[in-house]
C-alpha cells in the first residue's frame, strides 16, 4: 500500500511541476554557478522565473518579441574567440552560461526557449542568410524564422528573429537580409550530424 501511495505522490508532483522546470533545473543552476559565475546562474534564474514563467500564457507575437529581446541582450562573440573553433553550435546552456556566442548560438537559444513556451517547432526554421551590414558589407549570417502560417506564400508571413534586431519583424521589412540561402528544420525533420550533436548536448544540459 505504501508503494502505491509513493507512486501516486511522485506522479502528482511530476504533473503539477511547471514545464519550464524541465529546461532549467536546480542541478543546472548549481552547476552553472560553480562553472561560471553567479551572474551565469542569475541569467538562468531570470530565464526560468521571469521570461518563461511570464510568457507562458501570452500571445505568440509577445513571446517572439520578448524572447528575441531577452536573448539579444547576451553579448556577441565569434566561435573563434569563445571556443577556438571556426564554427561551433553551442547548446543553449553553454551560450547563456558563458553569456556570449555567435549568430547560430542566438538562433539555437531562441529556438529552444520558444519551443518551451509551446510554439510548434515546425513553425521555426534555422535560416542561412546574407546580411548586409550598415557599412554595406555582405555577411554570412543565421537567423530564426517563424512561419505565421504553415505554408507561407509571401514574405510578410515570415517573422525574423535576429540578433541584429530587437524586434521580430516580417521578412518583408528586413531589407538588410539580402539573400536567403537555406532554411532548415530544427528537430522536426531529417537530422543532420550537427543537429544530432546539438541534441545530445541539450539532453545532457551541456554547459
Amino acid at each position: 500500500m505504501k508503494f502505491i501511495a509513493y507512486a501516486f505522490s511522485i506522479f502528482f508532483i511530476l504533473n503539477i511541476m511547471p514545464l519550464h522546470a524541465k529546461l532549467i533545473t536546480e542541478p543546472l543552476l548549481k552547476k552553472a554557478e560553480k562553472k561560471y559565475t553567479i551572474k551565469s546562474k542569475n541569467r538562468f534564474l531570470d530565464l526560468r522565473d521571469n521570461l518563461i514563467k511570464n510568457l507562458k500564457n501570452e500571445n505568440v507575437m509577445k513571446q517572439l518579441n520578448k524572447v528575441n529581446t531577452w536573448v539579444n541582450y547576451i553579448r556577441y562573440r565569434s566561435d573563434k574567440k569563445v571556443y577556438g573553433l571556426s564554427d561551433y553550435w553551442a547548446t543553449m546552456y553553454e551560450f547563456i552560461g558563458k553569456g556570449m556566442g555567435d549568430c547560430e548560438d542566438y538562433t539555437i537559444a531562441k529556438y529552444y526557449i520558444l519551443k518551451e513556451l509551446g510554439i510548434s517547432p515546425k513553425r521555426l526554421k534555422f535560416t542561412y542568410v546574407i546580411y548586409k551590414s550598415r557599412k554595406g558589407k555582405n555577411i554570412s549570417h543565421m537567423v530564426l524564422s517563424y512561419l505565421k502560417v504553415p505554408k507561407p506564400k509571401k514574405q510578410s508571413d515570415i517573422l525574423i528573429l535576429d540578433n541584429n534586431n530587437r524586434l521580430a519583424l516580417p521578412a518583408s521589412k528586413r531589407k538588410d537580409i539580402v539573400k536567403v540561402i537555406k532554411m532548415i528544420n530544427g528537430d522536426t525533420g531529417a537530422k543532420s550530424k550537427k543537429w544530432k550533436k546539438l541534441e545530445a548536448g541539450m539532453k545532457q544540459k551541456k554547459l
Partner: peptide, 9 residues
C-alpha cells in the same frame, strides 16, 4: 553561407 548551410544540414 552556402557551404555552411550544406555542411550543417
Amino acid at each position: 553561407t552556402t557551404i555552411d548551410a550544406e555542411f550543417d544540414s
